[in-house]
């Protein structure tokens, strides 16, 4: 596939590109505390983009997405903790391990359709947690504590690079031949197959990408928290929060995951002190309302009702 000519690139990609460039340029001057908040926000956005590859684009709802993040986090924890690898190496390896896991898992679970896939995906975090708990090398129930210092700017540029790659890939996939095949699968998998779309391979490709980026992001997350803790790493509500982001932002869109991440992360970060304990309930309610009444999410709904925005928002 040829690279799209610069002029042909849509406004959404331009917008995200400019946003990321400005952010990247400003980062060294952002004070440490706001920068850590920004890094956290970007971690969520990166996770949302990674989930968007499979759930957003094909409609296969993956409740087990947090597993890839956990694999990335543990990979970084283990390699940095025992063989003193540079955290960046840990991030890369984390992505790779999650990619391998995704290929294995996907080969089995992607055979299921719809709600059956979703149920199968629910099992994986539970299985993952129980495996980790009995592995002494991974610290068992204690997890892994790292002593790798506090370096928000490195975190920032790492997660920044991950997001930039995800956005670029999402755009490339959705705007080429692949994008048509994927939309066909999402609309009617049997019909897609009967027109020549190799649905199993295409789904596995997206699932692997989804794992790769979630794993890498998990690595960054472990880096920022200087450790990995089993109960937190396999926390199902993390998966739910990522799902909430892409549902709220707009499934399968280019802007949706970013907007969704902002819409979910910022309120929960600042209202946390007020609504302590009820945060998940509020997110859950919002997702139900959106799924029922505005299934396109923020981006999809704007596109639907404001035709002028159709050329701009993707």
């Amino acid at each position: 596939m040829k690279w799209p000519k610069l002029r042909a690139i849509g406004p959404s990609l331009w917008g995200i590109g400019v946003f990321l460039l400005v952010l990247g340029g400003l980062a060294p001057w952002i004070p440490r505390f706001p920068l850590t908040i920004l890094v956290n926000l970007l971690i969520f956005a990166a996770l949302a983009y990674s989930l968007n590859f499979i759930t957003g684009l094909t409609g296969y709802v993956n409740f087990g997405h947090v597993v890839f993040m956990a694999v990335g986090a543990y990979t970084l924890g283990y390699t940095v903790g025992t063989i003193r690898l540079h955290p960046l190496g840990g991030v890369a390896l984390g992505g790779l391990m999650a990619l391998v896991l995704a290929l294995g898992l996907g080969a089995v679970t992607l055979r299921f359709r719809g709600v059956y896939f979703a149920i199968a995906s629910l099992v994986t975090p539970l299985a993952g947690l129980n495996i980790v708990l009995v592995l002494p090398a991974l610290g068992g129930g204690q997890g892994i504590l790292l002593n790798i210092g506090f370096d928000p700017l490195s975190w920032f540029y790492t997660i920044w690079a991950i997001i930039a790659t995800e956005v670029g890939l999402t755009y490339w996939i959705t705007h080429g031949r692949l994008g048509y095949g994927i939309r066909a699968i999402k609309s009617d998998e049997d019909a897609a197959k009967s027109l020549g779309v190799n649905a199993p391979r295409l789904k596995l490709f997206l699932f692997a990408l989804s794992g790769l980026f979630a794993g890498a992001t998990g690595g960054v997350y472990a880096w920022t928290t200087s450790g990995v803790f089993p109960e937190a790493a396999f926390d199902l509500t993390f998966s739910l929060r990522m799902l909430a982001m892409i549902v709220i932002g707009g499934m399968g869109t280019l802007l949706g995951p970013l907007i969704g991440a902002i819409a979910v992360y910022l309120p929960s970060r600042f209202f946390l002190t007020i609504f302590i304990g009820t945060e998940s309930i509020i997110i859950g309610l919002v997702v139900i309302v959106i799924a029922l009444f505005v299934p396109g999410g923020i981006v999809g709904t704007l596109r639907k009702y404001v035709p002028e925005l159709r050329r701009i928002l993707e």
Binding site: K186, S187, A191, S194
Partner: peptide
Amino acid sequence: THQIPKPFLGM
């Protein structure tokens, strides 16, 4: 062809 047509409705 499918006996009951299966168009991609969103396209």
